[in-house]
Design a protein around this nucleic acid. Structure first.
Length: 335
DNA sequence: CGGTTTTGACCGGCGC
DNA sequence: GCGCCGGTCAAAACCG
């Protein structure tokens, strides 16, 4: 079992897709990024069935990750702020994307993730309180109140092309259920954050269309720092700090930051990586049109040099390269 | 022994 | 009302 677990903890591979499957941006098509070695694709995910992709909405070509991050930034901005037209030459179809994930509150979100975070926080508080109440009620008397619809936590989901089902995102999870899903040969696993008073849940399932794709859906926001924190300043970044974009202060930017930023824009969820740590390297400001982000490859390399040089920072785990095929990084990954 | 996983049962929402 | 389905519970098993 444990062996299997460890075995499964091998790096996942070459695609990372992110999506906003639920509700923070109410009743809108959900966006899904498909970031591969050569492209970043936006798909649409079903509102409730995240693994059902409805088609490609946009496409950014990231040739060998040489596409400047500004393109990605713009892409992101377009995604969250449809009012700003895309001029990205690398994303000729992005105008579609731009208009598609239009959400009532997305403009404020894209204008400032701090505001977005604040908004999220407010909303979250209400929802958390309600949810807490409901959970208390539920625990005391089993039958739920009838006309009290269970409030849906905001969700943040992404897809990874991986053999690993349960990606380690730095938080500790306890599995509390597994269900067969209709129209899918693969079961869905339910996890809950083990931290007390943190009601974050996570669903993990494989895409029925592409078994190599794992869909991970986070629900809720962690109310505590990442527990795996042996690494100086990286590990413990309060969510507020993360959401305010003051976390990392200059660990490159680039892809990881983009990734983080996407997460933030959606729900301030920490982004994952394979083995250990969520690295909130938010040198990347809340303004998605910033140009203080570096291009993809340099930031990878930068990170590879930055982290290992610190004695307190374990070598390779917890970094982006763990998530990406070694070919991309032009260095084999040790396991 | 404490924490985690497994798994069948249970419950509520929803569509018909 | 009924059945299907997703989500959760909780006891037992498992593991370090």
């Amino acid at each position: 079992m444990e062996e299997k677990k460890k075995e499964e903890n091998t790096p996942f591979s070459n695609q990372i897709m992110m999506m906003n499957p639920e509700n923070s941006f109410n009743s809108t098509p959900n966006s899904l990024f498909n970031i591969s070695s050569s492209s970043c694709q936006v798909l649409e995910a079903d509102h409730h069935h995240e693994n059902q992709q409805k088609g490609s909405l946009g496409f950014i070509d990231i040739q060998d990750f040489n596409t400047p991050s500004s393109v990605f930034d713009e892409f992101l901005q377009n995604l969250t702020n449809p009012s700003i037209p895309s001029h990205s030459p690398a994303a000729p179809e992005c105008s579609e994307v731009v208009n598609t994930p239009a959400t009532p509150n997305s403009s404020s979100i894209s204008s400032s993730s701090t505001e977005a975070a604040a908004a999220n926080d407010d909303r979250k508080k209400n929802e958390d309180e309600e949810e807490l109440d409901q959970e208390k009620t539920k625990k005391q008397l089993k039958p739920k109140k009838k006309n009290q619809k269970r409030q849906k936590e905001p969700r943040f989901a992404f897809m990874t092309k991986s053999e690993i089902d349960h990606l380690d995102d730095g938080y500790r999870w306890r599995k509390y259920g597994q269900k067969a899903v209709k129209n899918s040969p693969f079961p869905r696993s339910y996890y809950r954050c083990t931290s007390t008073a943190c009601g974050v849940k996570k669903r993990v399932e494989r895409s029925s269309e592409d078994p190599s794709i794992v869909v991970t859906t986070y629900e809720g926001t962690h109310t505590h720092p990442c527990p795996i924190t042996p690494r100086g300043s990286f590990g413990i970044i309060p969510e507020t700090a993360m959401s305010a974009g003051v976390g990392g202060g200059g660990v490159g930017g680039g892809f990881t930051s983009h990734f983080a930023n996407i997460s933030q824009m959606f729900h301030q969820q920490p982004y994952f990586h394979n083995n250990n740590l969520i690295t909130p390297s938010l040198s990347f400001s809340t303004n998605t049109t910033n140009n203080n982000t570096s291009t993809f490859p340099p930031s990878f390399q930068e990170k590879r040099h930055l982290y290992p040089s610190t004695s307190s920072v374990p070598r390779d785990h917890g970094l982006l390269q763990d998530m990406l095929p070694s070919q991309l990084l032009k260095e084999p990954k040790d396991e």
